[in-house]
């Protein structure tokens, strides 16, 4: 493999992994508080369409990103209300959110199909972008790529170094104990759901404004679900979320490069396109094989409704 191919593949891998990192880190915080939100796909779709629409009208990708985050937070609030206030089943409410979000985004996005946004220029970090091989790939990237790295550090710091993070994890492990020592369990879970929504919205916005600057129905293409799988794969640890996201980005990009290379292959393009989905299944199998890994690492109250007694 020659150097320029390596650089461009690394560049593309980082780009493809970025939305997954952002969304999966949001879901990680969400799940650390004990709430399983299967609505990621719908929230990403909402984020993508809102970001696209606002960017198109305002001309500002940053307003777009904010709109995407706001839209996804708004729908995540429906999920929060159902599961946290009304004690609804989290699996069912998450599925409803996915269906609703995908449907509503398709509905809103109809007039925007066949419009392309101008590409947002990358931000070049002086000096280190000149490094051989990796410089162009890592340090001449979209702002959101750098932001995803910052987000990683913030999430690590928050979960493991801050008092608020400790409380959040306590709420996820044992809501009853957290409640007993005076922490507002439901409020904390609401905030976690909103954070998960905001990150899913940002991930969606990255897709429609930066990655492929256009809106197509179904463009999220399962990334919300893959992000959910990533959190399991990472056994609820931020660093592994990051590594996993880039591995997935790598799988997605490799198949695209093979398809685009004009190589004569014995198998069809659709099989290559299905690789990321198979990869998701395989990593789930590998990581779940040991029941104890999951049991030890998953937040104890994950997916269980909680209602304060008395």
């Amino acid at each position: 493999m020659d150097a320029s191919l390596f650089t461009s593949m690394l560049f593309a891998t980082v780009v493809a992994g970025t939305p997954l990192i952002i969304v999966a880190l949001g879901l990680l915080v969400n799940e650390k508080a004990g709430v399983l939100n299967l609505g990621a796909e719908g929230m990403m779709a909402m984020g993508a369409v809102a970001a696209f629409a606002v960017t198109h009208h305002s001309g500002s990708p940053w307003l777009g990103v904010m709109a995407g985050m706001a839209a996804a937070m708004a729908v995540s609030l429906i999920f929060g209300f159902l599961t946290l206030t009304l004690q609804a089943n989290q699996v069912a409410a998450g599925l409803a959110l996915s269906i609703f979000g995908v449907g509503l985004s398709a509905f809103i996005g109809k007039p925007f199909e066949s419009i392309a946004l101008p590409a947002v220029p990358p931000i070049r970090i002086p000096f280190i972008a000149d490094l051989p091989l990796i410089g162009e790939a890592l340090y001449n990237q979209q702002a959101l790529v750098y932001l995803s790295w910052a987000l990683f550090w913030v999430v690590v710091w928050f979960l493991y170094r801050s008092r608020a993070g400790l409380v959040l994890r306590a709420v996820g492990e044992s809501p009853a104990s957290a409640h007993a020592i005076g922490h507002p369990v439901i409020l904390i879970r609401y905030l976690a759901v909103l954070f998960g929504g905001a990150m899913a919205g940002m991930g969606g916005a990255f897709l429609s404004v930066f990655y492929t600057p256009m809106w197509v129905e179904g463009m999220v293409a399962g990334r919300g679900w893959i992000a959910l799988a990533l959190v399991v794969f990472a056994t609820w640890r931020p660093l592994r979320v990051m590594i996993g996201a880039y591995l997935f980005g790598g799988v997605m990009i490799t198949q695209l490069f093979i398809q685009g290379s004009g190589m004569q292959l014995d198998f069809p393009a659709q099989f290559l396109s299905s690789l990321p989905y198979w990869a998701t299944i395989i990593v789930l199998v590998v990581i779940s094989r040991n029941v104890n890994t999951i049991r030890l690492n998953s937040p104890m109250s994950l997916g269980k409704p909680y209602r304060a007694e008395g």
Binding site: I78, L82, A92, A96, F100, F107
Partner: peptide, 18 residues
Amino acid sequence: PSSISLVFQGLLLFFLLG
């Protein structure tokens, strides 16, 4: 757009859960 059906489907499940 006919995707309005999907919106209603999602709403129906939301309302049911509620």
